Deep mutational scan, measured.
Amino acid sequence: TIDDAFRAIERAIQAENEGRYREALKHFLDGGEMIVTAAEKEASQKVRNLLLHKGKEVLEWAEHLAEWILE
């Protein structure tokens, strides 16, 4: 659900702030994927587009974090 997705993102932010970057990455990926999944089930085109945009933002952040971890 969207609530689960945002809880995962909150955990990711907390982990990132505490320097637990790999854990943060996992939570960002989980949250982003949950948002995209919820968007695919959404009946309203406007809400679907907003959710897809937010999911994409979260997944892009996860990608940047992963690249930073690997440096």
Results as ranks from 00 to 15, higher is better:
Thr1Trp: 10
Thr1Ile: 11
Thr1Pro: 08
Ile2Leu: 11
Ile2Arg: 02
Ile2Trp: 06
Asp3Arg: 13
Asp3Lys: 14
Asp3Met: 14
Asp3Trp: 14
Asp4Tyr: 06
Asp4Asn: 10
Ala5Thr: 02
Ala5Gln: 02
Ala5Leu: 06
Ala5Glu: 07
Phe6Tyr: 09
Phe6His: 05
Arg7Asp: 05
Arg7Met: 07
Arg7Ile: 08
Ala8Ser: 06
Ala8Leu: 15
Ala8Val: 12
Ile9Ala: 01
Ile9Cys: 06
Ile9Tyr: 01
Glu10Phe: 08
Glu10Gly: 10
Glu10Cys: 13
Glu10Ser: 10
Arg11Ile: 07
Arg11Lys: 13
Arg11Gly: 03
Arg11Tyr: 06
Ala12Phe: 02
Ala12Trp: 07
Ala12Gln: 00
Ile13Pro: 00
Ile13Asp: 00
Ile13Cys: 13
Ile13Val: 09
Gln14Phe: 05
Gln14Tyr: 03
Gln14Asn: 09
Gln14Ala: 09
Gln14Ser: 08
Ala15Val: 03
Ala15Phe: 09
Glu16Leu: 15
Glu16Cys: 15
Glu16Pro: 02
Glu16Ser: 15
Asn17Lys: 14
Glu18Arg: 09
Glu18Met: 07
Gly19Met: 05
Gly19Leu: 02
Arg20Ala: 02
Arg20Leu: 05
Tyr21Lys: 01
Tyr21Trp: 12
Tyr21Asp: 01
Tyr21Leu: 06
Arg22Cys: 15
Arg22His: 10
Arg22Thr: 12
Glu23Tyr: 00
Glu23Gly: 01
Glu23Gln: 04
Ala24Val: 02
Ala24Asn: 01
Ala24Gln: 04
Ala24Tyr: 05
Leu25Trp: 06
Leu25Ile: 14
Leu25Thr: 00
Lys26Asp: 05
Lys26Ala: 10
Lys26Cys: 14
His27Leu: 15
His27Gly: 11
Phe28Leu: 12
Phe28Val: 04
Phe28His: 00
Leu29Tyr: 08
Leu29Phe: 07
Leu29Asn: 03
Leu29Gln: 09
Asp30Ser: 11
Asp30Arg: 13
Asp30Ala: 14
Asp30Trp: 13
Asp30Cys: 13
Asp30Asn: 14
Gly31Trp: 11
Gly31Pro: 01
Gly31Gln: 02
Gly32Trp: 15
Gly32Thr: 09
Gly32Arg: 07
Glu33Tyr: 14
Glu33His: 15
Glu33Met: 14
Met34Thr: 03
Met34Ala: 10
Met34Glu: 03
Ile35Ala: 03
Ile35Arg: 01
Ile35Phe: 14
Val36Arg: 13
Val36His: 08
Thr37Phe: 04
Thr37Arg: 15
Ala38Asp: 01
Ala38Leu: 15
Ala39His: 02
Ala39Gln: 04
Ala39Trp: 07
Ala39Ile: 09
Ala39Cys: 12
Glu40Pro: 03
Glu40Met: 15
Glu40Val: 14
Glu40His: 14
Lys41His: 09
Lys41Met: 11
Lys41Tyr: 12
Lys41Val: 07
Lys41Gln: 10
Glu42Ile: 14
Glu42Met: 13
Glu42Trp: 11
Glu42Ser: 11
Ala43Ser: 12
Ala43Glu: 11
Ala43Leu: 13
Ser44Pro: 03
Ser44Val: 04
Ser44Leu: 12
Ser44Gln: 08
Ser44Glu: 11
Gln45Thr: 10
Gln45Asp: 13
Lys46Tyr: 09
Lys46Gly: 10
Val47Pro: 01
Val47Cys: 12
Arg48Gly: 04
Arg48Asn: 03
Arg48Ile: 07
Arg48Val: 06
Arg48His: 07
Asn49Gly: 07
Asn49Pro: 00
Leu50Ser: 11
Leu50Ala: 14
Leu50Phe: 07
Leu51Ala: 01
Leu51Phe: 03
Leu51Asp: 01
Leu51Cys: 09
Leu52Asp: 04
Leu52Met: 08
Leu52Thr: 05
Leu52Lys: 06
Leu52His: 05
Leu52Phe: 06
Leu52Gly: 05
Leu52Val: 04
His53Asn: 13
His53Lys: 15
His53Ala: 15
Lys54Asn: 03
Lys54Ser: 06
Lys54Tyr: 15
Lys56His: 06
Glu57Ile: 13
Glu57Val: 11
Glu57Lys: 13
Glu57Met: 15
Glu57Ser: 07
Glu57Cys: 13
Val58Asp: 00
Val58Ile: 13
Val58Trp: 13
Val58Ala: 13
Val58His: 01
Leu59Glu: 01
Leu59Ser: 02
Glu60Gly: 08
Glu60Gln: 10
Glu60Asn: 06
Glu60Ala: 15
Glu60Pro: 00
Trp61Arg: 07
Trp61Ser: 01
Trp61Asn: 01
Ala62Asn: 00
Ala62Trp: 07
Ala62His: 01
Glu63Ile: 13
Glu63Asp: 07
Glu63Trp: 12
His64Val: 06
Leu65Ala: 01
Leu65Lys: 00
Leu65Cys: 05
Leu65Gly: 00
Leu65Thr: 00
Ala66Arg: 12
Ala66Pro: 01
Ala66Tyr: 12
Glu67Met: 09
Glu67His: 12
Glu67Val: 07
Trp68Ser: 05
Ile69Leu: 10
Ile69Ser: 01
Ile69His: 06
Ile69Lys: 00
Leu70Met: 10
Leu70Gly: 11
Leu70Thr: 12
Glu71Pro: 04
